[in-house]
Design a binder for these strands. Sequence first.
DNA 1: AATGAATGAGTCTTCATTCAT
DNA 2: AATGAATGAAGACTCATTCAT
Lengths: 212, 212, 212, 212
Amino acid sequence: MNSPAPSMPVAAGDEDSAKRRQILLGARQVFLDLGFDGASMGEIAKAAGVSKGTLYVYFTDKHTLFEAMCECEMRVQGIEKLSINPDDDVASVLRKFGQSYMELLCRPQGGSTIRTIMAIAERMPELGRRYYHNVPANWIGKLADYLNNQTAAGRLDIGNTELAASQFLMSCQATLFLPFIMQVSPPPSSERIAEVVESAVRMFLAAYQVKS
Amino acid sequence: MNSPAPSMPVAAGDEDSAKRRQILLGARQVFLDLGFDGASMGEIAKAAGVSKGTLYVYFTDKHTLFEAMCECEMRVQGIEKLSINPDDDVASVLRKFGQSYMELLCRPQGGSTIRTIMAIAERMPELGRRYYHNVPANWIGKLADYLNNQTAAGRLDIGNTELAASQFLMSCQATLFLPFIMQVSPPPSSERIAEVVESAVRMFLAAYQVKS
Amino acid sequence: MNSPAPSMPVAAGDEDSAKRRQILLGARQVFLDLGFDGASMGEIAKAAGVSKGTLYVYFTDKHTLFEAMCECEMRVQGIEKLSINPDDDVASVLRKFGQSYMELLCRPQGGSTIRTIMAIAERMPELGRRYYHNVPANWIGKLADYLNNQTAAGRLDIGNTELAASQFLMSCQATLFLPFIMQVSPPPSSERIAEVVESAVRMFLAAYQVKS
Amino acid sequence: MNSPAPSMPVAAGDEDSAKRRQILLGARQVFLDLGFDGASMGEIAKAAGVSKGTLYVYFTDKHTLFEAMCECEMRVQGIEKLSINPDDDVASVLRKFGQSYMELLCRPQGGSTIRTIMAIAERMPELGRRYYHNVPANWIGKLADYLNNQTAAGRLDIGNTELAASQFLMSCQATLFLPFIMQVSPPPSSERIAEVVESAVRMFLAAYQVKS
DNA sequence: AATGAATGAGTCTTCATTCAT
DNA sequence: AATGAATGAAGACTCATTCAT
């Protein structure tokens, strides 16, 4: 009755129908909580509020649904939104960048995408690769570009900017990511993250900043 | 060496029978490759070269076998063997420490323990905690102790040595661990690790070494 | 009669769907033949003409299916249908009552419910109790009520009517029930039952009837 | 060392070795509690205090062990010991007979043999038959013989003494056996049994005693 | 004779997937 | 398009039985 006008039907396979998004949302919740093997299509159907059959109208199989959900996460975790403000000083840029990255990694709501993909990467190497390139490598790349610019501008002195970018992002995780992922501590607060990032920024600048 | 003479068979429940070790080896291979849910007891039996029934003679159930295997890995990855040589200079100590840690994380043979445990930590939080304390926290702690001593000795100037130790170990992973775990690159060679560790050491000392 | 129209399918969980009844029928056959432990879900599925999976759509597990089947038998063996005709003389009432009870106990088709439940009562005491109250105790109770009335009416002289009712029903089983259940003899014919019941009636009346 | 002298070895298959009896005792306990299917050879070995392998030294398989145990029970429950005292009056004889029979059926210690065999009789008809003939039919027969004698002696007037004997033994079970076996009541006390038997004796004599 | 480690067939149960409606 | 009943392959686990010692 309230289906779309026949002149412009929304095919089930449509990349962007509301129902499809609804399913992906349910899948996200269940997959991130239980992992690929631990999740069942029944659970996902329940979480998405659709019937099990409907899942298969939109996605060929469990594997496809999982990949679509990951793809979706990759888009969300891509950093198109995050733009570096070139007017900020280096420390500020690093601080904002590190803070954003850590808040992405340690999001309190629901399970961790990166953990879920790490877990399955051996069996779905292509997915692991795609995620790596779209998320961590993307962040590293963006930061490396900025470090390149600053090096060119003479404010930083870095031989390998990609390595440096990665070093910075890794050191931002110190004492935070592993305890969080291993269920030792709850997700860190923004304040706690800020402290660790601040320390990472200081270490980074001590090593790479050009002494005027 | 002090294994029992072959003429004197060991009881099934024996904590250290050859068959038990054989099963743990098979379990290690399959669990680390496929994860807890992805592994099947049948696969494990095949990998261990025993019958499915025998698995249950030595381990109550899949869960218990998984935990025993993890426990075993924790002992192996514990750090008792690694002793810091106090006669070395700080840079050497850090270099050796970082290299050992990275070779542990990126061991080429078989799957990754840390990944497998991260994957299941949400559903087996106690296991996650145990692993965290026995392995990463143990390494961090050992290093932090050393940093404390060096700070007291006036060679380093570190406010929070545990944070610093974690920062160092994290930055050693830069460009190495994630690509390895995400199947982007094969396990890094010792040389490749050495380069990254070297860079991490430089950054660390730039930040924390007392300028004479 | 008031079953849903075939065009309107019934939900799986429905207490009274055709498929559910079909499964219960298969379960009845296999459970009564082989007992709870001896029966396998596979056999039951085959006997019911459904797949093993379907069993679990309608019943949580083997135990639940068994209890549902027993519950169903209790309803069938309940006594609602049997009404005592107060115009009959006492001997006739006893005769009909005994005959009905014995035909229930020694039904030729399929295994014996009472045997199956007796067999498992030690491990499922609640089930044993439920069956006892719903079937034998129910018959005894109905008969005891009648005996009470007749005693009040001065036609019988019984101190403990419940005991007397039980005595009567037990003596109806003489030479019939045990040989049947122990596979010594096939289910007794109605005529054979009638003879034994007749004898039980005579003994009963000799003991309890008021001599006019 | 303390094995029997070589000149007179006790073969494993020996019908009466101590170990054999020990196994039968364990088997009795477990089979009567759990039934044929519910019992496991492991449990039995544990209950008997021998290894699982030893079970198979003395008995071909589970089935054989079960039958041997039943055979043993039949011997115990046979009534060689119970001799009817011909000097007692009829009522006394019936009283003693009924009491003994009921105490056999409702023995408090451990499970019920008759129930265990009833449960399996459909699948092991020969066993059911053997048990019926050795135990209940044996009791009935002994009693029927006595009733025959008393009828011949003019003290009783019974057309079908076997039926009468069975009637008596069945009516002794009134309100006792079924509640006991169905876990409604604990095993009845000797006093409780005596009351019910007394009532059965009265009913029996009212029907069959020759009025002088 | 006695053991108990080892086996593999068989059990209950789950779940991805299909299909008639 | 959406459902949910039905399936059967596969998984964890048990247990009667065998066999080397």
